[in-house]
Simulated assay, not measured.
Amino acid sequence: MLVHMNTLLTSLPKSTPLPRYATRLLGAALAATAYVVCIPWDLRNRAETPGGIDETSPVSALGVTFLALSLLALAAYFGIRDRLAWTLLVVAAPPAALLYASLSSHPTQDANAWPVTWAFCTLVIGAGTLVSATVARRFRREDG
Results as ranks from 00 to 15, higher is better:
Thr117His: 07
Leu99Phe: 06
Leu69Lys: 10
Val59Ala: 05
Gly79Pro: 12
Trp86His: 07
Leu62His: 08
Ser102Met: 03
Ser105Ala: 14
Ala92Tyr: 02
Val90Asn: 09
His106Met: 08
Asp110Gly: 01
Val90Ala: 14
Asp82Ser: 10
Val91Gln: 05
Tyr77Ala: 10
Leu67Met: 15
Trp114Asn: 06
Pro94Ile: 03
Ala92Ser: 07
Pro94Ser: 07
Pro95Glu: 11
Leu89Ala: 11
Thr108Pro: 02
Ser105Gly: 13
Ser104Thr: 02
Leu88Asp: 06
Leu67Pro: 12
Ser102His: 08
Leu71Lys: 11
Thr108Tyr: 03
Ala61Arg: 01
Leu103Ile: 05
Ser60Trp: 00
Thr108Ala: 08
Ala101Lys: 00
Val116Ile: 15
Pro115Asn: 01
Leu74Pro: 07
Val90Cys: 12
Phe66Tyr: 14
Leu89Asp: 01
Val59Cys: 08
Asn112Arg: 00
Arg81Cys: 12
Pro107Arg: 00
Arg83Asp: 09
Pro95Ser: 12
Leu67Asn: 09
Ile80Lys: 15
Phe78Ile: 13
Leu84Lys: 01
Pro95Asn: 09
Gln109Pro: 01
Tyr77Leu: 15
Phe78Cys: 11
Ser102Lys: 04
Ala75Asp: 13
Trp114Tyr: 13
Trp114Arg: 01
Val90Gln: 09
Ser60Asp: 06
Thr108Ile: 05
Ala76Val: 10
Leu62Ala: 14
Leu71Phe: 10
Val64Ser: 07
Ala111Thr: 09
Leu69Tyr: 11
Val64Asn: 03
Thr117Leu: 14
Leu98Pro: 03
Thr87Met: 10
Ala111Glu: 10
His106Pro: 01
Trp86Gly: 11
Leu84Tyr: 01
Ala113Thr: 10
Phe66Ile: 15
Ser70Ala: 15
Thr117Phe: 13
Ala96Leu: 05
Pro115Gln: 00
Gly79Asp: 15
Ala76His: 09
Phe78Trp: 09
Asp110His: 02
Val90His: 04
Ala101Cys: 05
Leu89Ile: 07
Trp86Val: 14
Ala73Gly: 15
Leu72Cys: 10
His106Ile: 02
Ser104His: 00
Val59Ile: 03
Ser104Tyr: 02
Leu69Asn: 13
Leu62Tyr: 03
Arg81Ser: 10
Ala68Val: 08
Leu103Arg: 04
Ala73Thr: 09
Phe78Tyr: 13
Leu98Lys: 01
Tyr100Gln: 02
Asp82Tyr: 01
Gln109Ile: 01
Val59Thr: 07
Ala113Cys: 14
Leu84Asn: 05
Ala97Glu: 14
